[in-house]
Simulated assay, not measured.
Amino acid sequence: MWGVSYWVFPVISALCWIGMLMGMLIHWCVDGKPHYSSMEPTQNIAYISDVGAGSLKPLFITGSCVTTVFLDLSFISERWLRHNGRLVANTSVFQKVLSLVSLFFAGVGTVGLICLSIFDTLRYPTLHDLFLLLFIVGYVISAVFLCWEYQRLGIHFRQHAVLRNSFWIKLAFIFIELALAIAFAVCNFKYNYNAAAVLEWAVSFVFTFYVLSFVYDLIPAVKTKGAPFNRSTEMEQEANDPEARAHDREGRFTADSERTLAANDIRTTSGTKAPVGRNF
């Protein structure tokens, strides 16, 4: 089976994040959906920040810290495993730069999330909004550069479905989060606070799936435990990928066709082979 490996980092991160969100949402509902002092007069649905600014602030801070720490460990593990050959290795310095830039912006998102949980919307509304922006922008930009890296890797390693699938998963996250974040900002500016609150919860829940996508990225390292990524591992993964097999058959067919054409271009004359003249 999978065994305990680096993939547990994003699992812990996702479970902590979704547990925190569900705990805060259930608390607000069970408590009779109170109108917190940080809420606007016309607002009936609480933001995550409103719930986290009250008695559940310790949960908000702890959940945010644990989530981001283990998510960052997932980023670092991915970079380390790729560097050591436990995952498909980068083929250029440019790919490594993309990975490091992605890691940097993940750190920016980490700072944003931890700080927005500390500087709550009740006591520090301006700082809270600033760190909220930092959190969203940081992780979205990080995902962009990670997608870019996977796209470049996929060009060289078409046989690895993990790279291709992870690219599309993270790209979907980027578009969904951007759409939700823009809608959230528009609703806020138009003072439609209830819709904005729903969108904020949606943005946060979608983030869970992005965190879980790293489980998919890190699972292949289980097969290379104790040994670097080698050709046998590559052939095994290729054998399990129908698209890669089709691509390989196409390549072999092309090579065989070229050899056949080359063979037809020669003829035997007096026991020796001479090239046939071509008409242009």
Rank of each mutant, 00 (worst) to 15 (best):
A53L: 11
W17T: 08
Y36K: 01
P34D: 03
G54A: 09
K33L: 07
M20C: 12
C16V: 15
E40Y: 11
E40D: 13
K33A: 09
G52D: 02
G52Q: 00
H27I: 13
V11M: 15
A14T: 10
C16N: 13
I26M: 13
A46I: 00
S13I: 02
V30K: 03
I12N: 05
S49G: 04
G54M: 08
K33R: 15
V11T: 07
W28D: 08
G32Y: 04
H35N: 09
V30T: 10
A53R: 10
D50H: 00
M20Y: 04
H27Y: 11
G52H: 07
A46C: 12
V51L: 02
P10L: 12
A14K: 02
D50Y: 01
S37M: 04
S38Q: 08
I12F: 02
L25G: 13
L15S: 06
S37L: 15
K33W: 09
D31T: 15
N44Q: 11
I12Q: 01
H35F: 01
H27M: 09
I26F: 01
S37G: 14
E40R: 14
M39N: 06
D31S: 12
N44S: 07
L25E: 12
P41Y: 09
P10G: 14
V30F: 02
M22I: 15
C29G: 06
C29D: 07
S38R: 03
S13F: 02
I48E: 04
G23K: 01
M22D: 15
M39Y: 05
S38P: 06
V11N: 04
N44P: 06
M39T: 00
V51M: 05
I48G: 02
P34G: 11
M24G: 02
M24P: 03
P41H: 02
C16M: 15
E40H: 14
I12V: 12
W28T: 03
I48Q: 03
T42E: 11
G19Q: 12
E40S: 03
D31R: 10
Y36Q: 09
V30C: 08
M20P: 04
H27Q: 10
M24L: 13
P34L: 08
I48F: 10
S13G: 08
A14E: 04
G23R: 01
P41R: 14
H27S: 13
